[in-house]
C-alpha cells in the first residue's frame, strides 16, 4: 500500500501545519516542568523586588503631589510594567527554541518536508505567545495578593490582556529572527536576552518617563513597551502618572497596535527568509 495523503484542509496547509507545530511546541514545553516553573517564578520575583524593595522610593508624579510616596499606589502602577516586561521575554523562548532546533537538525528536517515553510515559524511564535497566558495568570494572581486591582471593568481588562498577547506574539518574531541568526544555542540564550533588558528598562515600566533625562524620554516615549504598559494601566484603571506630550503616550492603544503591526511586517519576512536559508551547525 502506498502512502495515503490527506485532503487539502479548508483553511489551507499553512494553517494546518502551523496548528501541528503550535501543538507540538506547547506540548513539549509542558514536558519540562523545571523550565516552566522558573519561567513562571521569575516575574513573580520581580513583583516582590519592585513592590517591596524599590517601591517606596519611586514617587508617581501627578498621583498626589502633597503626600509622601505611597507603596501601595506604586504596586498598582508597577503591575502593568511587570506584565509588559514578562511578555517581552516571550521573545527569548523563540530565540532559544529555534537556535536549538537548528543546532539539532530539526530545522533541516522541517525544510526537507513538503510542509508550508512559514508554518514552522508561525507555529513556534504562536506557541510561545500562548504560553504567556499561563505566565499572565500567575502574575495577575500575584498582583492581586500584593494589592493590584482591576478597576475599570472586565472588557477593558480583556482588551489589556489581548494587547499583552499581541505584544508577546510580536516580539516572538524578533526572537525567531535572532534565534535563526545566531550560531548556536549557547549564544542564543545570551543574545536572546541582551536586547530585551534595556528595552524594558528604558520605558515607563518601572519608573515614570518624566523621571528620565530628557534625551532618554524621547526613546522611552517611542518605545512600544511604554505605550503597551501605559495602555494597560489605563485599561486596568491603575495610576498612570503624568505623561509628557508625545503622540504614542497620548494614544497608547493605537500606537501599540501600529507598532506591533510594523514590527511583525518587518521581522516575520526576515525570519522566514532566514529559515529558508538556515543551515545547521
Amino acid at each position: 500500500m502506498s502512502a495515503v495523503y490527506a485532503k487539502r484542509p479548508p483553511l489551507g496547509w499553512t494553517v494546518h501545519d502551523s496548528i501541528i507545530i503550535t501543538r507540538a511546541t506547547i506540548l513539549a514545553s509542558f514536558r519540562i516542568p523545571e523550565a516552566l516553573f522558573f519561567q513562571l517564578i521569575q516575574p513573580v520575583i520581580f513583583v516582590i523586588l519592585f513592590a517591596y524593595v524599590f517601591g517606596a522610593a519611586i514617587p508617581i508624579p501627578g498621583a498626589d503631589p502633597t503626600s509622601a510616596p505611597d507603596a501601595s499606589l506604586y504596586r498598582q502602577y508597577l503591575m502593568p510594567g511587570i506584565f509588559g516586561q514578562t511578555v517581552a521575554f516571550a521573545a527569548a523562548a523563540s530565540t532559544v527554541g529555534l537556535a536549538e532546533a537548528m543546532q539539532r537538525g530539526i530545522i533541516d528536517r522541517y525544510r526537507a518536508l513538503p510542509m508550508s515553510q512559514p508554518a514552522a515559524l508561525i507555529g513556534n511564535t504562536i506557541a510561545n505567545a500562548l504560553r504567556q497566558i499561563l505566565a499572565l495568570t500567575v502574575l495577575s494572581i500575584t498582583g492581586l495578593i500584593v494589592g493590584w486591582r482591576i478597576n475599570d471593568g472586565i472588557w477593558n481588562a480583556i482588551l489589556a490582556y489581548l494587547l499583552l498577547l499581541l505584544f508577546a506574539y510580536t516580539v516572538t518574531w524578533v526572537g525567531a529572527f535572532v534565534g535563526l541568526s545566531v550560531r548556536n544555542s549557547e549564544t542564543a540564550s545570551t543574545a536572546g536576552l541582551i536586547w530585551i533588558f534595556p528595552l524594558t528598562f528604558l520605558s515607563n515600566a518601572f519608573v515614570p518617563i518624566t523621571a528620565l533625562p530628557t534625551w532618554l524620554q524621547y526613546f522611552a516615549a517611542y518605545n512600544p513597551i511604554s505605550s503597551l504598559v501605559l495602555a494597560c494601566r489605563e485599561l486596568f484603571g491603575n495610576p498612570i502618572g503624568t505623561q509628557p506630550d508625545f503622540w504614542p503616550l497620548q494614544n497608547p492603544v493605537e500606537y501599540t497596535i501600529i507598532s506591533c503591526a510594523v514590527v511583525i511586517a518587518i521581522f516575520a519576512p526576515l525570519a522566514v527568509r532566514k529559515f529558508r536559508t538556515a543551515a545547521s551547525r
Binding site: 495523503y5 507540538a24 537538525g105
Partner: peptide
C-alpha cells in the same frame, strides 16, 4: 543528528511528521 523532538514521545513524533507530510 537524530532530528526528533526529544520532549515528544516516539509516537507523537511520528504523528507530527506524518501530519507535516500532509498524510491522512
Amino acid at each position: 543528528y537524530a532530528a526528533v523532538d526529544e520532549f515528544l514521545t516516539g509516537r507523537e513524533n511520528l504523528m507530527m511528521f506524518g501530519g507535516l507530510y500532509h498524510l491522512d
